[in-house]
Design a protein around this nucleic acid. Sequence first.
DNA 1: TCTGGGGTCCTAGGACCC
DNA 2: TCTGGGGTCCTAGGACCC
Length: 508
Amino acid sequence: MRAAPTILHLDMDAFFAAAEQASKPSLRGKPVVVGGLGPRGVVATASYEARRFGVHSAMPMGQARRLAPNAAYLVPRFAFYRAISGQVMELLGRLSPLVEPLSLDEAFVDLEAGGLAEDSAGARAVGERLRAEILATTGLTGSVGLAGSKMLAKIASEEAKPDGLVLYEPGTERALLAPRSVRIIPGVGPATGDHLRRAGITTVADLVEAGEDELVRILGRSHGASLFRMALGHDDRPVVAERDAKSVSVEDTFDIDLHDRLRIRLEVERLAERCVARLRGSGHSGRTIVLKVRRYDFSTLTRSETLRGPTDDPLVVREAAERLLELVDTTGGVRLLGVGVSGLADYTQEDLFAQAEAEAGAGVGAGAEAGAEAEAGVGVGAGAGVGAGTDARAGAGRGTVGGAAAGPAGAGEAVEVVAAPGTAAEAGGRRWAPGHDVRHVVLGAGWVQGSGLGRVTVRFEEPGSTVPGRVRTFAVDDPELEPSDPLPLVPGGVTGAEGAAPVTPSGG
DNA sequence: TCTGGGGTCCTAGGACCC
DNA sequence: TCTGGGGTCCTAGGACCC
């Protein structure tokens, strides 16, 4: 705990959805939902307009579509978000050497370590200036919480949303927390919340009254003790700039459950290769290989194997994953497979044991780098591409509706951005995923509004314009249309497409 | 149209060791 | 011929977070 509110928590507002609205003028002020569009997709972020319909993060996409049928549904563009995140983190880095990113859109900053603020007034000024800089640099809004501890700073930023700043004076913590639900404390989720409720504890004041011994009895040593401290407003966790990664993993949920044992094995091999590519990309090796299987009934199990020493050899990881698969009964079907590596060594080291084993096992590791590029840029990510090939497509594609084919969106215009659920029309290896950027030889920059039935519908507009652009439909194999990189949100800004020449938005 | 993907931390039992 | 007490490693599962 510190005497001045010099721990800052920044949380960008509806980040993915806001980034999409900033880059697509026709979506501003409209409900936008970003997430997996497949039959098993979930919502990653809903814009505030979509939240009014009851749509929220982690909700199954099908449910979101029922609640907000006229919202725009987009696939996430991670490379784009990462670029914006980089700009924001850069601004935070100017405030203090101690910046702790929690995700692409969230971070703690220790203002005391930065020497920029030593009292409430100073901290507030820094926070407001930061918000202005973020808006000017990215075109997006973020909310700021300031307090004497991480927990309170985070609660403050939540309270500040959207587009606000809240500062809690040190000393007020207990009174402030007392009437709130136990769920406001980070680390208290649905299960712990239920557990406590059954014990008659629903508010933070109840936690304090219950006392540490009682909480330890209910929740266990570690959780109980830390929860009691939090309830009192005691939290002296430091802002930590760099934390070493502890594990690397990849997983895929399949559009349709997998039954064929050979196919399952093939997918495990592919996942192992992707996992190693990521492991190597981060400069690590690891000792423990983990296979994750989610069955048809959503029950999830893991099997792991620890090697004698760390490895980053694709063949070693793949063979371990295959051995682990042999331990799992997959009758009934599999909806998810995952491969992970933990017990990371913080440097890539040649592992003699693993090498020897590999050499003994089979012709040494060719085919290794294969999956290496998989991660990069593209950002189509999220489950797409998984079911490719054999899996059935759900239903016939409802083609994009161009109801709004021309002109500015009048009030009430539905922004229909829909392809056949879970699909992105594909032609010549090109995927027209909803929301992704394209360029037309004649008409210029635009984005995919939807696709299906051999057609792709594009709205031609750029971040800088103030009115929605016009919509045109093309054949998916139209040679004049090609995928392109994101345009900067503000003139001269970053695009997420390294090396791409920034294009100044029209009218800028 | 029920439930993503990438992480972290904690618990608990058994093996093993001193 | 009924019991030890830690500490550490490994495995499996679960809660939680964004």
